[in-house]
């Protein structure tokens, strides 16, 4: 661009800097500024001058009532401001990261708890299996048949070591409001609770070991009934099976 072509733009820069240039000339100059570094430098100086002109006016004290009015307006604005989440991007990112971290931690804890429960269930199954194996291999263990309308299985009775083991096939699953309850039956036909259990989900047979508080020789038989969840003091529900020693 020649000096003559450049001059009209340069002349308009002071007016442009303080917003006094008319619209048509403003558009032309803005376009020129995009490609002219020297005009941009010139503009920066005039803009700085324009900014300083703002401060060139003498101060005037506003009425004292204005300060009080602003103070009362702030009280209203303050309430709104406290209710508004005015987060910066970094605060928002930190917040999201924390939420994700908490969610991951919660998920991990839940998973760990679930694994612990599964491990405990498997340990219980192993211990029960080992007990049953040891009872079967012990010469003094008596094996009694469980045979009712609904289930079949075996009852292992070890009077010396005071252990009773139940191995029952095809026990129906119960809803959450019910449980199976084992009763030891004494010669007076009284029932003493020996525990509650639920069938394993993944097995067709259920194994349950009873370690009676009294000597098993004090009893003459074992029965199982369906009771409300948590068990009962005395049998109240349907009998599933009964085995006499």
């Amino acid at each position: 661009m020649t000096r003559d072509e450049h001059a009209p733009f340069l002349e308009n820069i002071p007016a442009y800097a303080i917003g006094a240039l008319d619209a048509d000339e403003t558009a032309a100059l803005a376009s020129h500024l995009e490609g002219c570094a020297s005009c941009r430098t010139e503009l920066a100086e005039y803009r700085a001058l324009g900014e300083s002109l703002l401060t060139a006016l003498p101060p005037r004290q506003p009425p004292a009532a204005l300060r009080k009015r602003l103070q009362s307006r702030l009280l209203g604005a303050q309430k709104t401001k406290r209710l508004t989440f005015n987060w910066s991007f970094s605060q928002l990112a930190t917040g999201i990261a924390l939420v994700v971290l908490l969610a991951m931690s919660f998920y991990s804890i839940t998973q760990m708890r679930s694994l612990q429960l599964e491990q405990a269930r498997l340990n219980r199954q192993i211990r029960t299996g080992q007990t049953v194996m040891s009872m079967l291999s012990y010469p003094a263990t008596e094996r009694l048949a469980i045979n009712s309308e609904s289930v079949v299985g075996s009852l292992l009775l070890d009077r010396e070591r005071n252990i009773v083991a139940l191995i029952v096939w095809n026990m129906p699953q119960l809803d959450e409001t019910k449980t199976y309850q084992i009763w030891l039956i004494n010669p007076q036909d009284e029932r003493v609770s020996a525990g509650i259990f639920r069938p394993e989900d993944d097995r067709v047979y259920t194994t349950y070991i009873v370690f009676p508080e009294q000597s098993v020789t004090d009893f003459v038989g074992v029965g199982v009934t369906i009771e409300p969840a948590g068990g009962s003091d005395q049998p109240t529900g349907e009998r599933v099976f009964k085995v006499d020693f």
Partner: peptide, 24 residues
């Protein structure tokens, strides 16, 4: 951060300049 006292301090510092300009 919503500090009212800081706001009033800024007001006391600059209100006369703002009012001088707006009055002009």
């Amino acid at each position: 951060r919503g500090d009212e006292r800081a706001f009033l301090e800024l007001y006391d510092r600059h209100a006369s300049r703002v009012y001088g300009l707006t009055l002009r």
